[in-house]
Design a binder for these strands. Structure first.
Lengths: 153, 153
DNA sequence: GCGTGTTATTTTATATCTAAAATATACCTC
DNA sequence: GAGGTATATTTTAGATATAAAATAACACGC
């Protein structure tokens, strides 16, 4: 068998594993808590940030989405009283997001369940295999694509 | 260091690698060809299917998306004359999608470039490492999540 | 032949993302 | 402190996804 498409085959395996797990987690979160994985990511970032919360820009950066998405995803969380938005007293332009008590409590439950799901999904891998997997994953370099695309243009 | 969150850390690494590469490929395809990665996937599936093409249901299954998405993603491709839709002569309900000559030609160019990008992104990995990576990836089992979610409900 | 039910696809409503335009406020220079 | 410029965020428009309702066509039993 030729190895000509090794990289493409590996990419398809990576994409399949990631999408499959993401879909399963999203379905689980929606079913159990009525929130998408995007919202879970917001709650997670804010939980980690603690009491000071995060500015909209910082939240956007951590979620690796666009600024518009942050506004939209936080909106329903604010409506439900899980997230609080206040103006930065030091910069009137900036908005600071943080978890309410209710939001923190809900997130704790979500995170516990989420962790169990992930543990189940990775059950077949030993800790050493997981470490090996992480080491391989970080060697993949998407920046190379951006470069070669620019060259071709 | 505790290994308590090994699985979650691995999941985050997987998600990061996959999203990063997907984003880079999507950006590359849009910049060079004006088509999203979703459309590329459609063209790819139809190219593989050859002259007989694929029924809408089969295309949906291969893309692993919902049936509605197939209708919507193919629409612009049909408008641009890259994909053809005809009624199945043996089943008036079914639609059969196939590539036009123009679509096949465009896809050939896209696929060649796509492969170069992926080769670049995986440059740091040896063929043996890629094989090892694939073997680890297929052991991840999202179905476990669906099961445990159902139990909890 | 004709209702009845199943199946294939499309349509519709909603959610989420991006990119770009609009808005609002801070900061800097004079 | 007034005006221009830069920056932070929201809004808007468009793409893509899902889920569920609607549409259309086949197929079976009578």
């Amino acid at each position: 068998m030729s190895d000509d498409r090794d990289a493409v085959r590996t990419w398809l395996a990576l994409l399949g594993a990631s999408r499959g797990l993401e879909k399963a987690v999203d379905t689980g979160l929606r079913g159990r808590f009525g929130h998408s994985i995007s919202r879970f990511d917001v709650l997670s970032a804010l939980d980690r940030a603690g009491a000071e919360g995060l500015r909209a820009g910082a939240l956007t950066e951590r979620l690796m989405v666009s600024d518009g998405a942050t506004t939209q995803v936080t909106a329903p969380l604010i409506r439900e009283g899980l997230v609080r938005r206040i103006s930065d007293p030091e910069d009137g332009r900036a908005a600071i997001f943080s978890l309410t008590k209710k939001g923190a409590k809900l997130f704790a439950g979500m995170a516990a369940e989420h962790r169990q799901w992930i543990d189940c999904a990775f059950e077949a891998l030993t800790p050493a295999q997981m470490k090996s997997l992480r080491r391989l994953l970080v060697q993949i370099d998407p920046v190379n694509i951006a470069r070669s695309t620019k060259d071709a243009a």
